[in-house]
């Protein structure tokens, strides 16, 4: 579906990330194309959140670089950095809503800071984003008064507030019921198809992966990098290795020592 001649919106080259001396990711390279829904898969603790933090400039990679829209994000000066950040919306794994503000104030904050919209317009925009994630009725609640799934949805609404070109979602469907989760998947697909938003999503939900992902990469803690790239259906039908196979077929890893062998 993507046009290979077009410049990728995110391009990661030879990225290495480490905490202290321990490398979590080594020599990772991949590209995300404009308007696609790109999913990052992998077992718990393999470095998905770390990779995402590198992509959004929160964590400085030890080596390698991240290009956003053709500009080097890892080595950007303050102005470029600020400009690139405007193109990005992020939902963190924990939601990270501001606890002292209501849901609608959380969503409104970026609008207040970065747009010249009149108050009535901001109100309508905030309402529209909250309606998109089905949180209209919780507009005036504080984050402490929300359930885990509502926090996720409010955080997604905030990530979408400025209509960013790229939206990063760290486990958006964790903590959501299947219906809300499917709704959210549909919203993501709509936004991607109709508004051309690029999504980079960390998720484990096989169901969402098949409906959502244009392409995915799978990371592994042992390999400290990418062990598979492709469309989800491809990976399911022709898994390049056992790790990918057990992930897509929800099987325990038979080669892993100490685990019960399936009969």
């Amino acid at each position: 579906m993507h046009n290979p001649n077009r410049q990728p919106i995110i391009s990661v080259r030879d990225l290495t990330a480490q905490y202290g001396d321990r490398a979590v990711l080594e020599h990772v390279s991949f590209e995300v194309h404009r308007g696609e829904i790109f999913v990052i898969l992998g077992g718990s603790g393999c470095g998905k959140s770390t990779l995402m933090k590198c992509l959004i400039g929160l964590y400085q990679p030890a080596a390698g670089s991240v290009f956003i829209d053709g500009e080097n994000f890892s080595a950007a000066d303050a102005d470029t950095h600020a400009r690139l950040l405007r193109k990005i919306g992020v939902m963190y794994q924990s939601g990270a809503l501001f606890g002292s503000m209501t849901v609608q104030e959380n969503v409104r904050l970026p609008l207040d800071e970065y747009t010249a919209l009149p108050t009535a317009a901001k109100r309508a925009v905030v309402a529209s984003k909250l309606a998109l994630v089905g949180l209209r009725d919780a507009s005036f609640k504080l984050p402490a008064e929300l359930s885990g799934g509502m926090i996720k949805r409010a955080a997604i609404a905030r990530a979408l507030a400025l209509n960013p070109a790229i939206v990063f979602l760290d486990e958006p469907s964790a903590g959501l019921d299947p219906v809300t989760s499917a709704d959210l998947d549909q919203t993501i697909i709509d936004l991607s198809r109709d508004l051309g938003v690029t999504f980079v999503i960390v998720t484990h939900e096989l169901a969402s992966i098949y409906t959502l992902a244009d392409r995915c990469i799978m990371l592994d803690a042992g390999a400290k990098g990418i062990i598979a790239t492709g469309r989800p259906a491809e990976l399911r039908d022709r898994p390049p290795n056992d790790l990918v196979k057990s992930f897509f077929h929800r099987q325990p890893l038979t080669t892993q020592p100490g685990l019960r062998q399936p009969s």
Partner: peptide, 21 residues
């Protein structure tokens, strides 16, 4: 047409902020 599809994402009642409690 492409903008009309965007418009469909936001139905009329979605933009009305709920009355503050």
């Amino acid at each position: 047409a492409e903008f009309a599809r965007t418009l469909e994402l936001f139905p009329l009642d979605a933009i009305v902020p709920p009355p503050p409690t």
